[in-house]
């Protein structure tokens, strides 16, 4: 088991994400596979963290735990001081909706919706009125640097970079304090990838805690803190 890893962040002393001795075990037939093994980390509010690890190291599982998409087999996860183990499905959904924005490698936009409709989705679940959410969605698209003529385009009518900007705008829709990005530049060319990371940097400088999972060492340069994971264990 690893001891608690405390990222060196000068921005805040308040941990917004805490994992205490977290393990995640998958059962495959008679085999028990440890995706995470005794992981303890604390991420401070306003930090920019990269979680580095090779494929299969457990970094995506770690991100899913922080994102309230998955629960640990043992150990405790706290997001914004809420212990996830005490929540039911709807409670987890509420935490996810109000605290976390997701950015995926594959963009994961809904193909049947336009860019602006994709951005509106989290706001709809949050009960925003149609007029207010349309206005906010346009603002978010602008913030994510997407030319507004693409607002009514569907994902298949946009480039990878443009799609990722829509995904970022969507992740920001409910102004979550935590932004989780799973290989956000994995499907982009170097220049576009750099632009996206600059955007995440800007968002972080305005107070959002950004957690990026990647195996690309280049992305370390944008973060304040790096967590390395290997075979489900934190190694540095």
């Amino acid at each position: 088991m690893n001891g608690a890893y405390m990222p060196e962040s000068q921005r805040s002393t308040h941990p917004i994400v805490q994992l205490q001795d977290v393990s995640r075990i998958y059962t495959l037939g008679k085999n028990r596979i440890y995706a995470l093994k005794g992981v303890s980390i604390a991420i401070k509010e306003g930090d920019f963290v990269t979680i580095m690890g090779s494929s299969g190291s457990g970094k995506s599982t770690l991100l899913n735990m922080i994102g309230c998409l998955d629960l640990p087999t043992s150990g405790r996860v706290k997001v914004n001081n809420v212990d996830l183990s005490k929540l039911d499905d709807d409670g987890l959904t509420a935490i996810r909706r109000n605290n976390i924005g997701f950015i995926f490698q594959q963009f994961n936009l809904i193909p049947t919706l336009t860019a602006i409709e994709n951005v509106e989705i989290p706001m709809i679940f949050n009960g925003e009125s149609p007029r207010k959410r349309r206005k906010k969605a346009l603002m978010m698209l602008k913030k994510a640097d997407l030319p507004l003529e693409y607002a009514r385009h569907k994902p298949n009518e946009m480039s990878g970079g443009q799609q990722q900007r829509v995904a970022i705008a969507r992740a920001l829709a409910n102004r979550p304090p935590i932004l989780l990005a799973d290989e956000p530049t994995g499907n982009l060319d170097t220049k576009t990838g750099h632009n996206i990371m600059k955007l995440l940097e800007e968002l972080n400088s305005s107070g959002t805690t950004v957690i990026v999972v990647t195996h690309d060492p280049e992305l370390e340069n944008y973060s304040h803190t790096t967590i390395r994971i290997q075979d489900g264990e934190i190694i540095g």
Partner: peptide, 16 residues
């Protein structure tokens, strides 16, 4: 399936 996963990640409840 994927779209359902995305919606759940974006804050949809199971009843949604």
């Amino acid at each position: 399936v994927k779209e359902i996963g995305i919606l759940l990640a974006m804050g949809a409840t199971k009843s949604n």
